[in-house]
Design a protein around this nucleic acid. Structure first.
Lengths: 345, 345
DNA sequence: AAACATTTGGCAATAGTTTACAATAATCAT
DNA sequence: ATGATTATTGTAAACTATTGCCAAATGTTT
């Protein structure tokens, strides 16, 4: 209906050129104060609003960035996105969100789609399932579109990333269990082709070795990050001839499943069995039997990823410096792993 | 670095016009099969990708829609967004997400910002705090940008919305508590200027009246949707001379706070006191004492909101039909309100 | 009054794509 | 062979905003 007003409309009304209007609105010093005032007033009066599309086409900057995550309805990713938004919004950027549902094929589609939507950059956490085929990162890099990984990354020269120290997270969690007196600690991991899961595993392993405990590979099970899968894997562990007395899980959901299974067998937590999760999902705090977990400061992670992006677009021409930001994880000790005897001392 | 290839590049290479290339790529029937083939092959070979910005500028459609929510790190909103994405993505749309943190001022900024990013429509759930000032919906409507509310809506003529039947949700929850034998049911509401909270309240009230129980306004407390606020309000209720024997809360988080407070006083749930929440957040299912809650089918809500949007853009010229889709809530009965005696019968 | 400097704003190109209209070439009928 | 018809492609404008270059217009100096 009411067509949007353009600088041409303003120009026509004032009997000047669109160029002048543009300059006036942009505070170009070559415009007289009088004209500037007049233009500004008329613009306001006519409800003028700059068409960002035209600007984007002209300047080659869309002021949109893409964020690709496995899924959005998880607290971790939602929080990272929140961090990204908090940082980017004040700079005039918008965030376009894509979910991969953990499928590489969708991931590839998403990247293409964002690319021809002319995003100024892509922040992403890679998906873990699908064939081994290479992704289309080359395209991105060739087009000089900044790419920044967070959490789940891939080693690509020249690409920045923001992660936590997953090795340390795994180590801390395991060390904590050992401090609680646990002797036979199992690990519910996830697809270890993904760096973060491999590192959590390595941290776990190292802590066991450093403390002179026996490392038993059969106590490590790769488990999808779902409650039911956690139950299943825990069944296997508890049915072993020599069952473990603690579980360190690389997922809170899996830890929850584990707890359900353990309780259903009448085993007391934490007295007889300790459990530690990973990600510090809100429910770990809410549970009556609150769950010890490793916090990844997701909002902070998002903020920093956004900052790195801003740096890279700022640098435009300069040497493209690869940054690898590593945040420190924090172990949130709760009831699921805190033996009262230890608490007492 | 490697400049993106445009239709001009293809045209030049083939010694034809950009117009012909454009037509060939778009399957215009006026182009010979031979040329079409040639152009398509060359385009593929040169890694051509349509510049969506240019298209957007030309056509006036950006293929972006804005989604405005109070916050993204809540399962409900994240799930709605997921539904919207699922529906819109296959149609070539992208979703731009904005959070208001429940502040009207931010909401206004968001709308402006999305508008001059030339979004093709806005789906939103309004914020509940801030001054009473009118919002800038008029602008939207004048510009003929489709606006669709979901969940938290406002009554605006000509604007479609997707909600659940909150009255029914409130009624069902309360009826369920009455069926369990509860006699004195309190309600932890929220800002009742927001339609959904008002309706849940009205449903609650009606159920009480229909069942011949005494309606006591002092048992209704407006409470922000936070765990701690839930505890506070529950303290007040329990300290009353004639305390309630059940709580229907319009928020799961508040219900959780209530449960914490009740338990801390040694009152048994559900035997002595029943609690029902609203939203069916995942943790209500996970808790050892699982919480009865009203499911709002958020993913479905998002899908439908997206469908309504697609209809409206499709209609373009036709009569702008206002649609009010109302979904049916589902009461998920769990331990926090299920007395074993009743279970037995 | 002439010469020069300065201010101000117009012209036209640019970004990449689409499309109404025009033009050319080829085919067919008379 | 001429005109009519069709098939295919080209021309140029449009979408909106920005910007280098240039031209008036104004003011200043001698």
């Amino acid at each position: 209906m009411s067509k949007k007003t353009t600088i041409y409309d303003i120009a026509e009304k004032l009997n000047i050129t669109a160029a002048t209007v543009s300059r006036a609105l942009n505070g170009n010093p070559k415009i007289s104060e009088a004209t500037r005032q007049l233009v500004n007033d008329t613009a306001k009066e006519m409800n003028y609003e700059q068409n960002k599309l035209a600007l984007a086409l002209k300047s080659g900057k869309s002021f949109n960035v893409g964020v690709i995550v496995p899924r959005i309805d998880s607290n971790f990713f939602a929080s990272v996105i929140r961090g990204v938004e908090d940082e980017l919004y004040p700079q005039g950027y918008h965030v376009i969100i894509c979910q991969t549902h953990d499928q590489k094929s969708v991931e590839i589609e998403n990247i293409n789609s964002l690319l021809n939507a002319q995003v100024d950059g892509i922040l992403m956490s890679i998906s873990n399932s699908g064939p081994e085929e290479t992704r289309n990162f080359d395209q991105l890099l060739k087009k000089n579109v900044p790419l920044i990984f967070f959490d789940r990354k891939e080693k690509i020269p020249g690409v920045s990333s923001v992660t936590i120290d997953d090795f340390k997270g795994g180590y801390q969690a395991t060390q904590h269990l050992i401090n609680q007196g646990c002797k036979r600690i199992a690990h519910l991991s996830n697809n270890r082709k993904i760096e973060i899961f491999e590192k959590r595993y390595l941290g776990y392993k190292q802590a066991i070795i450093d403390n002179g405990l026996e490392f038993d590979e059969s106590l490590v099970i790769e488990t999808m990050s779902k409650v039911d899968e956690g139950r299943k894997s825990t069944k296997i562990l508890l049915d072993m001839p020599e069952p473990p007395d603690a579980i360190f899980s690389s997922s809170d959901f899996v830890a929850l499943g584990a707890i359900q299974e353990i309780k259903s067998r009448g085993i007391n937590i934490p007295e007889e069995f300790c459990v530690v999760g990973f990600a510090n999902e809100p429910f770990t705090r809410f549970m009556e039997l609150s769950i010890t977990s490793v916090d990844q400061s997701p909002v902070e992670m998002g903020r920093i990823a956004a900052q790195v992006f801003l740096e890279e677009v700022g640098n435009s021409k300069k040497i493209k410096s690869e940054r690898q930001v590593v945040l420190t994880p924090e172990l949130m000790i709760r009831k699921s792993s805190l033996k009262s005897s230890v608490l007492a001392k």
